[in-house]
């Protein structure tokens, strides 16, 4: 094969070491954008999920709207929100990123609440839990595995989507991609890709770890026969 190494070797380590501090700060921005998006997504989706669960009438419109957002391409969604929240603003980026988490988190919250065993709820009422106590101490804790599973999917999805917000001046690691492409230079793109995948992997493992620690009752299996 002819070697026309216009894009350079796949990783040029000298570039990585000289740009280390920029890479780190972009990585941190990437994490920040992701964490904010998932946190806001949770703050919206969990109460909405509780509401939709208690009021089945509200479910089709809520799932419908969040589902609609989910289908819209990310680049398009960013641009659709931009006139409202400003082009090239972090708000626009977050609005879009939050929008994508909603469907997953909402569905999982509803599914989690629906999976709470009827007998446990019956027992809670029979023992004199008030509706609020029942929600906080029985229903939500029992819905937590499903909600956390949703957080897992939402987080990994968001990490991938954050790169796209580079088009409106945010993007964390996505900026490396834009830089590499405009300079016809492999290394930044590859670094962005690898760090993004690693970040997704670490986040995934972290959430699984949180699940393990905070939900010991899910993991421990029946010992007695």
């Amino acid at each position: 094969m002819g070697v026309v190494a216009s894009a350079g070797p796949i990783v040029q380590w000298s570039w990585v070491s000289s740009e280390r501090s920029m890479i780190v700060s972009l990585l941190l921005q990437h994490i920040e954008l992701t964490v904010i998006a998932v946190a806001i997504g949770l703050a919206i989706a969990v109460p909405l999920g509780i509401f939709a669960w208690k009021m089945p009438v509200a479910r089709p419109p809520l799932i419908g709207v969040t589902g609609l957002i989910y289908v819209i391409p990310s680049v398009a969604l960013l641009s659709l929100f931009a006139p409202l929240t400003g082009f090239f603003s972090i708000t626009t980026a977050e609005v879009a990123l939050v929008g994508y988490t909603l469907l997953i988190l909402l569905r999982n919250t509803i599914a989690g609440l629906e999976s709470v065993p009827a007998d446990a709820q019956d027992a809670a009422q029979g023992m004199g839990y008030t509706p609020l106590q029942e929600l906080m101490k029985v229903q939500l804790p029992l819905a937590l595995p499903a909600i956390l599973a949703g957080v897992r999917v939402a987080t990994v999805t968001t990490i991938g989507l954050v790169t796209v917000t580079a088009f409106i001046g945010q993007g964390g690691l996505g900026q490396l991609i834009i830089q590499g492409f405009s300079e016809d230079f492999n290394t930044p793109i590859f670094v962005g890709l690898v760090l993004s995948v690693l970040l997704a992997g670490v986040a995934d493992a972290l959430i699984v770890g949180i699940q393990r620690i905070s939900l010991p009752w899910v993991r421990r299996r029946r010992l007695a026969s």
């Binding site: 007998d119 027992a123 809670a124 029979g126 023992m127 029992l142 937590l144 009752w217």
Partner: peptide
Amino acid sequence: RVELRRRTGYVIQQAGLFPHLKVADNVASV
């Protein structure tokens, strides 16, 4: 009714234990 239920014991078929709480916390509910 909440008052009433707290001083009325209630046992159901599937036991209705809270799966996320240890046995001690289940018993400590009321």
